[in-house]
Design a binder for these strands. Sequence first.
DNA 1: ACGGACATGTAACACGTTACATGATTAA
DNA 2: TTAATCATGTAACGTGTTACATGTCCGT
Lengths: 177, 177
Amino acid sequence: MDVRVLCLGMLTRQEATGYELKKVFEGPLRLFLDASFGSIYPALNRLAAEELVTCSAQAQAKRPDKKVYRITPKGRLAFLDALMRKPGADRFRSEFLATMLFADLLPPRHLSQLIDERIAECRRELGELDGALAVAASPAERFVQGLGRTIYGAALEYLADNRHVVESEALLASGQN
Amino acid sequence: MDVRVLCLGMLTRQEATGYELKKVFEGPLRLFLDASFGSIYPALNRLAAEELVTCSAQAQAKRPDKKVYRITPKGRLAFLDALMRKPGADRFRSEFLATMLFADLLPPRHLSQLIDERIAECRRELGELDGALAVAASPAERFVQGLGRTIYGAALEYLADNRHVVESEALLASGQN
DNA sequence: ACGGACATGTAACACGTTACATGATTAA
DNA sequence: TTAATCATGTAACGTGTTACATGTCCGT
């Protein structure tokens, strides 16, 4: 699902500007959703050209016009159509995990620090998700956020319980160099 | 971490051909790692041009030469250097999850079938990971595979326990259309 | 007879990121 | 005064996918 379809989907919930859409991509769902201005604005322009959304520009003093986008009936159909396609495989790109795959090549201290930071990061993320769940959006959104929390929680526990596996290996390897 | 660095990393473990590397990308780690021939072969050629790997071609009857790549000391240093960089943020791209975010727009039957398939898929993946863990590679690899298993396991349980949240919402929504 | 494994590679294309351009307002 | 928020947009660039090109051998 590309940025274009994702934007269209968000507009099924709420009319929004490109700027507001970007904020959604930075919110608690950012693990799953992501897009930059450089992809959002062209996406919205294209959606408008295809008449899947309408755009009403509100003039603002000393600022670029604020362009509020609203989905059209045609846009809703197009989004539905995209939603009904069989979803492709997940791809979990994690540089942290890729690094862990070669943990034995790292200096032990560096590795431990990496894991410490990762654990802190997971906790931060968990806190944010819990906060987001408390203010509660739609059930669907809560469902996805809840899954995110579950995954982060499980990953955190796993990390704490199993870090010794890679850490001891890194120690052994560093003793042999 | 791009395909080039990833290939370099795998070559720290074992000399390999592009074809063999591709098989690794299709194995139990495919959730975290992924690359197509169209990116692997150019990556290897570039690595060879930079002298981070060497390439020895073995002539084969009636087939393209088999090109075995080996990492050089310079390549090991370059890889280490890449590994030591602060890892970027995770990005979990899941079309399934993106679809769930709009579950209330889907026909209830379609949604339930989607979730059923997803659960089956998770189980398949879990079985494969368990199989891979049994034959055991390096501790680092087991660590990462174990994390994969943990995540899939947690996701599976969450799905089973919470599917009713989105399913009932979809039912409600479909009754109102 | 047909598909899949083996084996490498190129070219067109899609998609997204990054950095840049512009500029006011407000809080620390 | 420095950074962040608001607000949109373009252009260059990087990276990867898909489809194509080529051909054998083996199992069913």
